[in-house]
């Protein structure tokens, strides 16, 4: 039996998760020049909110989904105010540390509130998936791939064809100039954090039925998503998507044909090679010279 189609499907499914989280990274990085090390915890918190609403309180799935995303929007705003905003004039280093602190805070607050047990979140669909041509298409992965595609399209439309999107872009390119043009820079950054938290939340909720809901779920994904953004070229949306998909596929095939235990190392190795050979990533702008 040929393994390749099955591996490819799984690889793309996992890659789509990385890509979704990576999108959140890229947005915040573009707006603030800061890597948010707590991006993975956004996914984790959203998944737990979903468990609270859909499982514990028994709300309908769609309502729980909206409520969880609403919660994420609030968290994103608080995160901006508490973790980023006071440090906005300092170098990237304190902000990195601050987001690492926030990631510890979020993970352990969830632990304190909900306990260490992994939880189950049912998927959107009743059926687990479909078997076609010897390949099992997991329904949740199909959903993840679909949602990722839609979100990417939405993001493209939003940034290129709406006024708010253009203001966001202007802010990320040159804050001083943007504020001279009358763009409310602080508001734009706030919006970025809110959207980014919601995006991370969507990723967490979608992936929860596959990976279960646990305290550690976010950090593992986030690290991979981070690697994906670098492979793709930091600050580039297309790069994040392609990088995420590439990483998912590389890992899956690497596990199948090279080594299962070292599959994580493989991803990081690819990353290091990229950093040394092509630091600008697949799609990053050429660092060396001005266009």
């Amino acid at each position: 039996m040929d393994l390749v189609p099955q591996l490819l499907f799984t690889g793309i499914g996992i890659g789509a998760v990385y890509a979704l989280v990576a999108l959140g990274f890229v947005l915040i990085f573009r707006a603030t020049n800061v890597v948010n090390f707590a991006q993975g915890e956004f996914s984790m918190v959203a998944a737990f909110l979903m468990v609270v609403f859909a499982v514990d309180l028994g709300w309908p799935y769609w309502l729980s989904f909206l409520a969880a995303l609403g919660g994420m929007a609030v968290l994103g705003a608080l995160f901006n105010l508490g973790v980023y905003y006071p440090l906005r004039h300092r170098s990237y280093l304190p902000v990195i540390i601050s987001t690492i602190g926030a990631s510890i805070l979020l993970a352990n607050t969830t632990l304190a509130l909900y306990g260490p047990q992994p939880q189950v979140l049912p998927g959107w669909f009743e059926t687990q998936g479909i078997l076609a041509g010897g390949v099992f298409f997991d329904s949740q992965y199909l959903l993840i791939i679909g949602v990722t595609a839609v979100l990417v399209a939405f993001q493209y439309w939003f940034f290129e064809h709406t006024l708010v999107g253009k203001k966001l872009q202007a802010t990320s390119q040159d804050k001083e100039m943007a504020s001279l043009l009358g763009i409310p820079v602080a508001g734009m950054i706030m919006l970025t954090f809110v959207y980014s938290a919601v995006l991370g939340g969507i990723a967490g909720i979608l992936v929860a039925p596959v990976l279960f809901v646990s305290i550690g779920m976010g950090s593992t994904i986030a690290l991979k998503a981070f690697a994906a953004t670098i492979i793709g070229g930091f600050g580039d949306v297309t790069g994040a998507i392609v990088g995420g998909l590439a990483l998912g596929v590389i890992e899956t095939f690497g596990a199948a044909y090279i080594s299962v235990p070292y599959k994580d190392a493989l991803g990081f190795l690819v990353l290091v090679v990229f950093l040394v050979v092509r630091p600008q990533g697949l799609f990053g702008e050429r660092v060396a010279e001005k266009a």
């Binding site: 440090l87 540390i97 602190g101 926030a102 510890i104 805070l105 352990n108 306990g115």
Partner: peptide, 17 residues
Amino acid sequence: PGLYLALYGLAVILIII
């Protein structure tokens, strides 16, 4: 469980700020 580490995370943020 988690309370101590949560405070630790908070302390990191406060120290940095």
